[in-house]
Design a protein around this nucleic acid. Structure first.
Length: 935
RNA sequence: GGGUGCUUAGCUCAGUUGGGAGAGCAUCGCCCUUACAAGGCGAGGGGCGGGGGUUCAAGUCCCUCAGCACCCACCA
C-alpha cells in the first residue's frame, strides 16, 4: 500500500468495478428494502443538500444490502417543468429569440436537446458520491412509461370527478405567464405605501375614503365595502360612489370582512384581482371585472388612457392623476406582504383564468389517517403536526401550467368547446364516437411537475402495469427528504399512493435538515456562499472557486463582495478531501431534525480519519502479509489485549447497528470513529507491537495477535463501509484474503478486484458475537491504561523527555495487581518507556518519588535527578484538592437522610463506593505529599 | 396572528428512560518513538440563555421571560 491515503487514486476505480458487475442491483434474495431517490432536476447539478441526502440514502442502502435484504435504491430524474423551461428560454434570449419564435414543437425539441447535453451531469456526480443506485432501472419523469402513468392517473381521477376544470382566481405569474400553485408563492414583507383615495358619492352629499396598497386595481373595483356595524358609514350602505378615473358607478356594500379599525374602515372591492375581494364579490354577487392582460398590463376593460401600461406604470399614473384631481388624501409608507413566484421572483397577481384542479378533500382524508394510524411514521415525529396542519386546511390543487415543457394535459376540445378526456386522441374519438370530421384540439397546457412526482413511488416500478418490481418493492421502506417539500411532494405522494396502489408509498419518512454555510446562512448562488460537493472531494484552487461563485449572478454588483469573502475564507482554495471524508462528515453531522452548519474543519478531521484507517491497515498488512495468521491451523494463543479488542469490537458492532436502526448516523459515525482511533489504533496496535517484535513471544501468541489484527480490521472495514465505501473496499481487498474471505492466490496480482470479483459491499454486515464479550478482560486493560496514564502524566508534567526510560516502584498492590503486572510487564515497559518495575514492601522506606494511583495501588517514580520537587508538590496539591472537593460533595449527599431514604439502593451504594474511592485516593496522595515535603 | 425548532467549552455539536457535564476542531506544552507530523503524549477551558417550580436529586420534567431561526396565515 502507498504510504499516504490518496482518495482520488481509488474512488473512480471501485465505483466502475461495482457498477460494471451489477452489484447495485437487488439480489433477489431476502426481504425487500427499497428507497426511492427524490428525483433531482435532470439538467441540474449536485449541491450540498443532494450530497447530504444521498449520503444518508446510500448508507442505508448499503447497510441493508449487507444485512441480507433484497435492496433497491431506485434512481431517476425529474423534468422540472418551469425550472428547465426557464433555463432554455434564457439560452434563447441570449440568441435574441423567445420560445414563440421557435414554436411549441421546435422549442420542446430544443429542451430535449438540452436534456441530452446536460442530463448526464447530475448522474455522473451521483456516481462520484458513491451512490449505489441500480442504474439499470433509472427513470425519467417524462419517459414513455412514466408519461403513461401520468395520463392514466389523470383520466381516472377525471372520470371519478376528482379532476375538474374551472374558472376562478389563481396565482398568476405575469413574467412566466402561467398559473402556479399556492405552494409556489412565497410572501415577504416589503416596503410600500398606503394610499387614501377619495371616492365621491354618486348620489351626492360628500365622499368616502378608501385605503389601498394597490391603487391601480381601482380600475377594476366593483364595490366599496364597510363593516355592517360601523356607525360612521351606516347611511352610505346601499348608496353608490362614482369611481374616479374609470367613470363607473359602483355600490357601497356592508360586509363583515371589513375591519373598521384599519385604515379608513372603507375597503375598495376588486373581485377579479384580490382573493379576499373575490370572496366578498361572491357573497354579494358582484361582477368580476378583469383589467389585466396575461403579462399584467391594463387591458381593454380599463380606461383608454391606461391601456397597455404595465401594472407598476399604471400605478404611478393612477396616483398622479388622482392627485391632480384632488382625490388623493394621503400617501403614507406602509409595510405589506408581497407575494412572489419562487421561480421568477415576479410579483404574483391573482388572476381570473380557466385551470384544471385536483379535488383534494377526498384524497386528504386517507392521507391523514395513514399517518394517524402509524402506517407511516415521520422521523423526527414532530413533522407529523406540520403534515396534519396542511392537510386539514388543504385547498384544491391547481395542476395546469401555461408552459410547454411537461406532460401535456390529456384533454381535447371540439369546436363547441366540449371537453373530452382520455389516454390519447384515438381513445377519445373511439369512446365518444367522434369521426374524423370532428376537429379536436388538445389542451395546450401541461401539468404541474409535482403531478408526475406524486406518482414516483409506483410509476418508477412499472405502474400501471402490474410488475414484479411493484409487487416486491411497493410499499417502499423509507423516504429520505427535506422538510421543504413535505407539502409539495410527500403529502401528494401519500395521497396518490393510497388512491392508486391502495397502500402507503413508504413506511417511514426521514426528514433531514438543511445544509447551511459556516455562519449558519442558507447557501445560495446570490449570496455567493455555495460549496460544490465535488470541490470538497477533488479540491479547487482559489481563483476557480472565486470564478464559480461570481459568474452568472443575478446581481453582478455583488461580485466584489463575494470575491473578498471567498478569498478571506479560503486563502488557499479548498484541498481535496475525497468522497469518503465528505460522506463521513455528513453522517457525523446528521442529527435528526436539525439543520447542519457545514464546517470545513470537520471534513479535514474526517479526511485525517481516513488516513488513520489507511495507516492502521498498512501496519496490519505489514505484520500479516506473508506471515502465519493462523489460517493454516497451528496453535493460537490470545493475549489479554487480543481478547480486549475483540470484546470492544462487539461493543462497536452493537452501537453501529443500533444507530442505523434509529437513523442516528451521527452516533454510528462517532462510535466507529472512537473505536477505530481511540481503541484499535491508540491501544490495540500499540499493544500488539511487543508481542510481534519480541523474539521471546511464542509462535502461538504471535499467530493469535496477527489473526486478531486481521479479524478486527476486516470487521471494522465492513462496519464502516456504508459510510465510507471507497477506502474500505480498497483496504478490504487486501485484508480479506488474510482473513480467509477471499481466495488468496489470484486477486492481488491482478489488482484485487479483477481477479476475485468479490466485494466488501456484498459481505454481511457485522453482528455481535456474545461469546467474544469479556468484561473481565476489559477491566484488566482498563487497569493497564490507567497505569500508563499515570506514568505519562507524571512524565509530561514533570517535563521528563518522552524517550527517557524510567524506573518504577509499586506499593500497596493487591494479588490481582501483581498478576496483572506480570501479564503486562513487557507492554508496560514498551508503552510507558519504563526500564524496571519493582515492588516495594509495605514497610520499606520509599525514595523521594512522584506518585500516581491505579485504584489502591501506588505507582512511584523515583525523583533522583529527574523530578522537580516543587512541581510534584504543586501537582499533588492540586490533585488532592480536586479529590477532596469531589469527596465532600458526595459525603454531603450521603449525609442527607432524604437521599438515603428515597433514592434507590443502588444509587446510594454507587455513591458510597465513589466517595470511598475518592477519599482513599486523597488520603494516599496526602501521605505522599507529606513525605515529599519532609525529604 | 398561529405553529415548530433552537440556546451546553472559543467554534460546530452530542447528552436514550431525571442519579458522577462529553466529542471533534481550535488553544497551550513536550516529541519526527520504523502504521500514521493528515501523527504521538499530556494539559487548560463550561453560571448547561434568565427566573420560578416539582423532586432526596434537574442540562434532562413543568411554568414563565428573553433572544435566534424556520413554517403557515386574506388584514385593504
Amino acid at each position: 500500500m502507498d504510504k499516504t491515503y490518496e482518495p482520488h487514486a481509488i474512488e473512480q476505480r471501485w465505483y466502475a468495478f461495482w457498477e460494471e458487475r451489477g452489484y447495485f442491483a437487488p439480489s433477489g434474495q431476502g426481504a425487500p428494502y427499497c428507497i426511492m431517490i427524490p428525483p433531482p432536476n435532470v439538467t441540474g447539478t449536485l449541491h450540498m443538500g443532494h450530497a447530504f441526502q444521498d449520503t444518508i440514502m446510500d448508507a442505508l442502502t448499503r447497510y441493508y444490502r449487507m444485512k441480507g435484504y433484497n435492496a433497491l435504491w431506485q434512481p431517476g430524474t425529474d423534468h422540472a417543468g418551469i425550472a428547465t423551461q426557464m433555463v432554455v428560454e434564457r439560452q434563447l434570449a441570449a440568441e435574441g429569440k423567445t420560445r414563440h419564435d421557435l414554436g411549441r414543437e421546435d422549442f420542446i425539441e430544443r429542451v430535449w436537446a438540452w436534456k441530452a447535453e446536460s442530463g448526464g451531469t447530475i448522474t455522473r456526480q451521483l456516481r462520484r458520491m458513491g451512490a449505489s443506485v441500480d442504474w439499470a432501472r433509472e427513470r425519467f419523469t417524462m419517459d414513455e412509461g412514466l408519461s403513461a402513468a401520468v395520463r392514466e392517473v389523470f383520466v381516472r381521477l377525471y372520470e371519478e370527478g376528482l379532476i375538474y376544470r374551472g374558472q376562478r382566481l389563481v396565482n398568476w405569474d405575469p413574467v412566466l405567464r402561467t398559473a402556479v400553485s399556492d405552494l409556489e408563492v412565497a410572501s415577504a414583507e416589503e416596503n410600500g405605501f398606503l394610499w387614501h383615495i377619495r371616492y365621491p358619492l354618486a348620489e351626492g352629499g360628500g365622499d368616502l375614503v378608501v385605503a389601498t396598497t394597490r391603487p391601480e386595481t381601482m380600475l377594476g373595483d366593483t364595490a366599496v365595502a364597510v363593516h355592517p356595524d360601523d356607525e360612521r358609514y351606516q347611511r352610505l350602505i346601499g348608496l353608490h360612489v362614482a369611481l374616479p378615473l374609470a367613470g363607473r358607478r359602483i355600490p357601497v356594500i356592508a360586509d363583515e370582512y371589513v375591519d373598521p379599525t384599519f385604515g379608513t374602515g372603507c375597503v375598495k372591492i376588486t373581485p377579479a384581482h384580490d382573493f379576499n375581494d373575490y370572496a366578498v364579490g361572491q357573497r354579494h354577487k358582484l361582477p368580476l371585472l378583469n383589467i389585466f392582460t396575461a403579462d399584467a398590463r391594463i387591458n381593454e376593460n380599463g380606461p383608454e388612457a391606461y391601456r397597455g401600461l404595465d401594472r407598476f406604470e399604471a400605478r404611478r399614473r393612477v396616483v398622479g392623476d388622482l392627485e391632480e384631481l384632488g382625490l388623493l388624501d394621503e400617501t403614507r409608507p406602509h409595510k405589506l406582504m408581497v407575494p412572489r413566484g419562487d421561480r421568477s421572483h415576479a410579483v404574483i397577481e391573482p388572476f381570473l383564468t380557466d385551470q384544471w384542479y385536483v379535488k383534494t378533500g377526498p384524497l386528504a382524508g386517507p392521507a391523514i389517517a395513514a399517518v394517524k394510524t402509524g402506517r407511516i411514521r415521520f422521523i423526527p415525529e414532530n413533522w407529523e403536526k406540520t403534515y396534519f396542519d396542511w392537510l386539514n386546511r388543504i385547498e384544491d390543487w391547481c395542476i395546469s401550467r401555461q408552459i410547454w415543457w411537461g406532460h401535456r394535459i390529456p384533454a381535447w376540445y371540439d369546436a363547441q368547446g366540449r371537453i373530452y378526456v382520455g389516454r390519447g386522441e384515438a381513445e377519445v374519438r373511439e369512446k365518444h364516437r367522434l369521426g374524423p370530421e370532428v376537429a379536436l384540439t388538445q389542451d395546450p397546457d401541461v401539468l404541474d411537475t409535482w403531478f408526475s412526482s406524486a406518482l414516483w413511488p409506483f410509476s418508477t416500478l412499472g405502474w400501471p402495469e402490474r410488475t414484479e418490481a411493484l409487487d416486491t418493492f411497493y410499499p417502499t421502506s423509507v423516504l429520505v427528504t427535506g422538510f421543504d417539500i413535505i407539502f409539495f411532494w410527500v403529502a401528494r405522494m401519500i395521497m396518490m399512493g393510497l388512491k392508486f396502489m391502495g397502500d402507503v408509498p413508504y413506511r417511514e419518512v426521514y426528514i433531514h435538515g438543511l445544509v447551511r454555510d459556516q455562519d449558519g446562512q442558507k447557501m445560495s448562488k446570490s449570496k455567493g456562499n455555495v460549496l460544490d460537493p465535488l470541490d470538497i472531494i477533488d479540491g479547487v484552487d482559489l481563483d476557480e472557486l472565486v470564478a464559480k461563485r461570481t459568474t452568472g449572478l443575478m446581481q453582478p454588483q455583488m461580485a466584489p463582495r463575494i470575491e473578498k469573502a471567498t478569498r478571506k475564507q479560503f486563502p488557499a482554495g479548498i484541498h481535496a478531501h475525497g468522497t469518503d471524508a465528505l460522506r463521513f462528515t455528513f453522517a457525523a453531522l446528521a442529527t435528526t431534525g436539525r439543520d447542519i452548519v457545514f464546517d470545513m474543519g470537520r471534513v479535514e478531521g474526517y479526511r485525517n480519519f481516513c488516513n488513520k484507517l489507511w495507516n492502521a491497515a498498512r501496519y496490519v498488512l505489514m505484520n500479516a502479509e506473508g506471515r502465519d495468521t493462523g489460517a493454516g491451523g497451528g496453535d493460537i494463543e490470545l493475549s489479554q489485549a487480543d481478547r480486549w479488542i475483540l470484546s470492544r469490537l462487539q461493543h462497536a458492532i452493537a452501537e453501529a447497528n443500533a444507530a442505523v436502526r434509529d437513523y442516528r448516523f451521527d452516533q454510528m459515525a462517532q462510535a466507529l470513529y472512537e473505536f477505530t482511533w481511540n481503541e484499535f489504533c491508540d491501544w490495540y496496535l500499540e499493544l500488539s507491537k511487543p508481542v510481534l517484535t519480541d523474539p521471546a513471544s511464542s509462535e502461538a501468541a504471535q499467530r493469535g495477535t496477527r489473526r486478531t489484527l486481521v479479524q478486527v480490521l476486516e470487521t471494522l472495514l465492513r462496519l464502516l463501509h456504508p459510510l465510507m465505501p471507497f477506502v474500505t473496499e480498497e483496504i478490504w481487498q487486501r485484508v480479506a484474503p488474510l482473513a480467509g474471505k477471499i481466495p488468496s492466490n489470484p486477486p492481488l496480482e491482478k489488482g484485487g478486484a479483477e481477479g476475485g470479483g468479490i466485494s466488501i459491499m456484498l459481505q454481511p454486515y457485522p453482528e455481535v458475537d456474545p461469546t467474544l464479550v469479556d468484561e473481565a478482560v476489559v477491566a484488566e486493560i482498563e487497569w493497564l491504561r490507567q497505569f500508563l496514564a499515570g506514568v505519562r502524566r507524571i512524565r509530561s508534567e514533570m517535563n521528563i523527555a518522552p524517550g527517557k526510560p524510567l524506573p518504577v516502584l509499586l506499593q500497596q498492590g493487591s494479588d490481582e495487581d501483581r498478576e496483572r503486572l506480570e501479564r503486562h510487564r513487557r507492554a508496560l515497559a514498551t508503552l510507558g518507556r519504563l526500564d524496571a518495575v519493582a515492588w516495594l514492601g509495605e514497610s520499606e522506606p520509599a525514595p523521594e518519588a512522584a506518585t500516581a494511583l491505579v485504584g489502591a495501588m501506588k505507582i512511584l517514580i523515583p525523583m533522583a535527578g529527574l523530578i522537580d520537587k516543587a512541581a510534584e508538590i504543586a501537582r499533588l496539591t492540586r490533585e488532592v484538592a480536586r479529590l477532596r472537593q469531589e469527596a465532600e460533595r458526595g459525603a454531603a449527599k450521603l449525609g442527607n437522610a432524604d437521599f438515603l431514604g428515597r433514592a434507590p439502593a443502588e444509587v446510594v451504594e454507587k455513591e458510597r463506593v465513589r466517595v470511598a474511592e475518592l477519599q482513599l485516593a486523597a488520603t494516599k496522595l496526602e501521605a505522599q505529599l507529606t513525605r515529599i515535603r519532609h525529604l
